[in-house]
Design a protein around this nucleic acid. Structure first.
Lengths: 201, 201
DNA sequence: TGTACATCAGTGAACGCGCGTTCACTGATGTAC
DNA sequence: TGTACATCAGTGAACGCGCGTTCACTGATGTAC
């Protein structure tokens, strides 16, 4: 049953992609290899032809998921120039669709588990976060790059925090209010950001 | 080896308190009953004399941890009147001490696991969150109660998000910058909050 | 108040079960000549 | 280009191991009279 190199590579990519979804749905500890392989249409036995360990899979799936997040924020921001792009990216992130999504932000879906993860996993998460900061900061082009980065750090903190809390709150009305309020407040911050930053100097 | 009612109650409380710490250190899935009982100085066999299941323990430990959080924020805020109290509570929350603490905010330590938890656990988390919102909102007493609640929702989102991200980032310098920047930005928001809220009307 | 018995907190061992990992096997693909 | 052999992707079963849970047992505490 040996497969061609091309098909092997395709299978591997497929495992990573379905694994990236399963991991965000059930968490790192809550996701089994049998489950990931089954979701990819395979049996558990073949897993170790592609990866050294569960940890190696987690690292790759996380990198994949973080890349999706960056791509999605980047393309949302790219629809409008400067701060308007950031506003749009924020509204997309803090949407009901993202709230219910099973392939959303890994910082929300895996946040507390990532903090306890090994060196390699945390490095992947850290690097991806800094890239995300740069994506946002690049759109805050009416202040200096350092000020833009600092501003982006705080915007992302609120985004991740609001979505994390929205996910765990069981009362749908509060959830909706929280997201709406975060969008509103970040909107104000982003619009007034340049002025506030200037004032702060 | 039967113990007196008083001692039984003390033992139970002790299990919940040590369990609340273990749970935040290792996560829900990552914490075993053997480990919790050992941390309390007991053996696993006695566990079911106090709790119906691991889930029941988790619910109680979470409630305990959330109560500690509320008490700590409440007492920090109470040291100063009005918005100054909120500023102080924010700085305490976003401190290096809290970053390294093993008995800190459950929303940060368990966030992504809570979102996947059962009805009861999520209800406990939700109720505690709303109480926390009220604690903060009570100090934003120069705007109406509804505006104060909305403002508190966003402040807490940034606090939880910043601490969650700070915990998972492996670069200590970035972590410190993120916390510092969140403190600074929230400080500005809280100080200008009343004015901004009035403007928004 | 004292006595006899029931209760039950805590121990230590055992139970299924699911997990990550390993392995013998199959047969199509890749390689060497 | 064709042939013979080595490689290896994928299967299905098995492995230890740790987990949540159960249980027989012990002996101090609580209760009934």
């Amino acid at each position: 049953m040996r497969k061609s190199r091309e098909e092997t590579a395709r299978t591997r990519r497929h495992i990573v992609e379905t694994g990236a979804v399963e991991l965000r749905r059930n968490g790192i500890a809550g996701t089994g290899l049998v489950e990931v392989m089954a979701a990819a249409g395979l049996t558990q036995g073949g897993f170790y032809r592609h990866f050294d360990s569960k940890d190696a899979l987690v690292t790759e799936c996380l990198a994949n998921a973080l890349d999706s997040l960056r791509a999605s924020i980047q393309s949302a921001a790219a629809t409008r120039p400067g701060r308007a792009g950031v506003l749009f990216a924020i509204d997309s992130y803090l949407s009901e669709a993202h709230l219910k999504s099973e392939s959303g932000c890994p910082f929300v879906a895996l946040g507390s588990e990532l903090a306890r993860a090994g060196r390699e996993v945390r490095d992947v998460a850290s690097d991806a976060f800094l890239k995300l900061v740069d994506v946002i900061a690049a759109h805050l082009d009416d202040v200096g790059p350092v000020a833009a980065k600092k501003e982006a750090l705080v915007l992302l903190s609120t985004m991740v925090g609001a979505m994390s809390l929205a996910r765990l709150i069981s009362d749908g009305e509060v959830t909706a209010m929280l997201l709406a309020q975060a969008r509103k407040s970040l909107g104000r911050q982003v619009r007034e950001g340049a002025a506030a930053s200037r004032r702060a100097k």
